[in-house]
């Protein structure tokens, strides 16, 4: 026999959820990390010091991972369904940018780093076209 207490004990939690979205977004974050990858790859190829080259690889992998994170934040958090209507290739561009960041992480291919920068610039265009600077930064970017 079920007791009243058992029956009235909630069986599940429901979330009146808030993840405190700060609303601040800027693809520049991804761009800076990606530029860092680009420069590190240049330095890697220019050097014959094996220790330095190893350091380049380690640091570049960390920067590439950061790039990917910032791309994902734009993709998953900033862009909304109405932005996808405005830019039908939005998902494709973000997906390719995320893939390109992975490739930069795995390789020392300067062309891959260049491609990544190009894709981040596409994200930047879409961010600007959807209100970017005025909507998501406190007072615009510092000049």
């Amino acid at each position: 026999m079920l007791s009243l207490r058992t029956i009235l004990r909630p069986t599940r939690r429901v979330h009146a959820h808030c993840d405190v979205p700060c609303g601040v977004y800027d693809p520049e974050q991804a761009r800076i990390e990606a530029e860092s990858c680009y420069r590190i790859i240049e330095k890697y190829h220019a050097s014959t010091d094996e220790l330095f080259r190893q350091r380049c690889v380690v640091v570049k992998e960390a920067r590439a991972e950061e790039t990917k994170h910032h791309i994902d934040v734009m993709w998953h958090d900033y862009f909304k369904p109405e932005h996808v209507e405005q830019y039908p290739d939005l998902h494709d561009v973000c997906w390719k940018a995320s893939k390109a960041a992975s490739k930069v992480k795995q390789s020392t291919d300067l062309e891959a780093a260049k491609e990544l920068l190009g894709l981040i610039d596409r994200i930047d265009e879409m961010w600007k076209g959807t209100g970017g600077l005025a909507k998501t930064r406190l007072n615009g970017r510092p000049s």
């Binding site: 079920l2 029956i7 009235l8 599940r12 979330h15 009146a16 808030c18």
Partner: peptide, 16 residues
């Protein structure tokens, strides 16, 4: 609740 599969009891978390 005991009689029905259509009812359940839940607890609210969060303040939204």
């Amino acid at each position: 609740v005991a009689a029905s599969r259509w009812l359940d009891v839940v607890e609210v978390h969060g303040s939204s």
